[in-house]
Amino acid sequence: MVAKSNAANELLFARIYDAPRELVFSVWTDPKHIGNWWGPKGFTTTTRAMEVKVGGVWDYVMHSPDGTDYPGRGVFTEVDKPNRLAFSHVGGKADDPHLSCEFLVTFEDLDGKTKLTLRMIFPSVEAVEHARDLGAEEGGLESLERLAHFLRTSRV
């Protein structure tokens, strides 16, 4: 019941897509594709720059339905086409530049279909400190993402 650090601060998703693995990989790594599905419902995403290699940056802006822009940034930490992709991500529905999450995406070929696994890891310790710094600051919600995940399994 008590969160065991790492297992608790991550979110895990798995999907099977009826599409070849190269294509699924490319919708994550091609600027012309990623904006078509990334982000919460009703949001659109414009990529300003994307360099898919270790150390390369994905720089984007998410546009909310109410017209607010939220910048986001990913730094690729692993690029193994078409098997694995990892990046350190900052940003989200708020524009706090210090909020981060590690994305790890794996692409597995299932006879022409693709199993995608998405793991989002929230470095909780930083997040806690950051949440304290934020205090009552408006827009602090986003910083709580990481914490919230960290806490997911400690629900009572």
């Binding site: 979110l11 998703f13 999907r15 599409a19 078509n36 990334w38 419902k41 993402e145 919230a148 806490l151």
Partner: peptide
Amino acid sequence: VSDWVEDYRQDWEESLDRLDGYL
């Protein structure tokens, strides 16, 4: 808190659904 997490998770479920349609 758990409601909030649930919202966030839901956002991502929707993105991954959208990805399916897009593919």
